[in-house]
Nucleic acid binder design. Structure first.
Lengths: 174, 174
DNA sequence: GCCTATCGTTTGTCAGACAACCTATCTTGG
DNA sequence: CCAAGATAGGTTGTCTGACAAACGATAGGC
């Protein structure tokens, strides 16, 4: 009755229960590849994300940058340090508020990002090699939209789900 | 020439360069929620994945299980310990090979998983709330297929990409 | 001018990942 | 039957990376 074949399942049963695993798998591979690809970019994929935002969007301050990327401010500090040391971005004092720092990309930073993006896109196609080309775009797009929605609703922790044990009450089989 | 508008970009520019970030965002939120939802399941999402495979697929041994989930064997050890302590699975000696252990789910484990899956599915819908219902399915499906393909080609590390600096040769500015 | 909030940085703590090693068992060759 | 190597699982130790808390500097309100 119960399933006994190792890999011969109806597949919808398997798929239904491992969305998180799938995401993790794809992300892990993506990161693996990107890390290897951008190993001279200060903090690999981290540095890449930051550089991308700095170049493409004009984000006001470091704090805003952290919020935009949903990462910790303390992380930003040293990643920015290293990106700056590599001459890809600059930290400038904000004329309006001397506590704040504006982070701007250098020309070198822009060039580097452009090259990096080219390569990353290529790697992404490779990572998504299991999907026909057309669906890769769909997947990317859906991911981006889902992520944006999540990020927008970031403060989160809304109590829509009951906090209750998944485990049965142990009133069986002693 | 270069981009100067703060947030008024064509959006495909932005989106094109943060697939990794998007995945990370979605996964992080998924995990956050699931962890909170399954906090009495021994290792949260980890335990959930393992339990799911143990229940739905009849995986021969622990080693095979590790391979199936693409996680380290040393991790399996203690997660299985705790799942077993919770009475959800059992470690049985393999009659054919006394080195190996077969991991089988208990009835309680099956029930628990069923309940957990119900809840996780619900949470997933919530996490993907930014997508219209129909597209959530598409997204799940694409993720699952991409992941399976990646996993199948797991040994990886094929040298399809040149290992070459992203940084320009520094023959400019000084 | 004082008090409080905010920006960025620094430091310390903690958990999780991964490698190296160990024991028990199986397999193969003599 | 014994010895040597291979394999399954488990244990230990190290190391990285995330996050919290504390800190110095500056801004804004009173």
């Amino acid at each position: 009755m119960s399933v006994t074949d190792p890999c011969e399942l109806p597949a919808d049963r398997k798929r239904g229960s491992n969305f998180g695993w799938s995401l993790g798998m794809v992300l892990r591979r993506w990161q693996e590849r990107v890390e290897e690809l951008l190993k001279d970019l200060p903090h690999g994929s981290r540095g890449y994300h930051i550089l991308a935002v700095v170049v493409h969007e004009e984000v006001p301050t470091q704090g805003a940058l952290a919020a935009r990327l949903a990462i910790d401010r303390s992380v930003l500090t040293y990643v920015i340090d290293d990106l700056a040391n590599a001459g890809l971005i600059e930290r400038r004092p904000d004329p309006q508020d001397r506590r704040a720092r504006r982070v701007v990309a250098t020309e070198r930073g822009r060039q580097t990002l452009a090259e990096a993006e080219r390569r990353v896109t290529h790697v992404e196609d490779h990572v998504l090699g299991g999907l026909p080309e057309q669906q890769r775009e769909v997947f990317r797009d859906l991911a981006a939209r889902a992520a944006e929605a999540i990020h927008a609703a970031a403060p989160a922790t809304d109590p829509c789900v009951a906090v209750q044990s998944v485990l049965p009450p142990a009133d069986q089989t002693s």
